[in-house]
Structures are given as C-alpha cells and as structure tokens.
Amino acid sequence: MDTSDEPFDRALLYLRAAGHDTGPETRAQLYSMLQARGAEKPALSPGQLLEHMPLWFALPEPRVGRHLPPITRASIGYPRE
C-alpha cells in the first residue's frame, strides 16, 4: 500500500486500518467524496479529512470488553505482630 501523504492514500490506509473494505466501489466513493471536499474553500488537509471518515463510511463498531463485576468492598485483617 502506498504510504505517501496524498489525501486519497492516507484515507485508504485509514479504511484498511479500520478493517473496512477497500474494493473498487469504496475507492470510487472515496474519490468522489474527496473531489467534492477538494472543491471547498479552504480545502481540507489530509488530517482533517480523516476525521470525516467515520461519517462517510460505516466503520466497524468498537467491541465493548466485559466489565469487571460490581465491587463488594471488604477489608483485610492485619494481625498484630
């Protein structure tokens, strides 16, 4: 994968990192999004662009790990020496 700093490449890497499909359909969608944003003034930097990715694409939902059980506070008995 290209690691250049071009917005398209960085955005594609972000999608792959998120586990999102990066097939032709996604690439076309990404390209059109970038074209639309590129026409805006001022144009978005590659970094700013990435912050929009979760809005444009359905990225995988984060899994929530199992929480610890509710705490049942207790104390430890310390013997006298």
Binding site: M1, T3, L13, R16, G19
Partner: peptide, 21 residues
C-alpha cells in the same frame, strides 16, 4: 509508524466489514 502499519495491513487482506473477520 504509519509506513509500518501500511505494510502490516498490506500483508493481511482485509475482509468486508459485513463478513465475520
């Protein structure tokens, strides 16, 4: 680090989101 990560994801082809990974 991003460069390393690019190589890392390159070596493992990502599956579609809708599929079990």
């Amino acid at each position: 680090v991003l460069g390393c990560m690019a190589q890392s994801v390159e070596s493992a082809s990502p599956a579609a989101v809708s599929l079990p990974r």
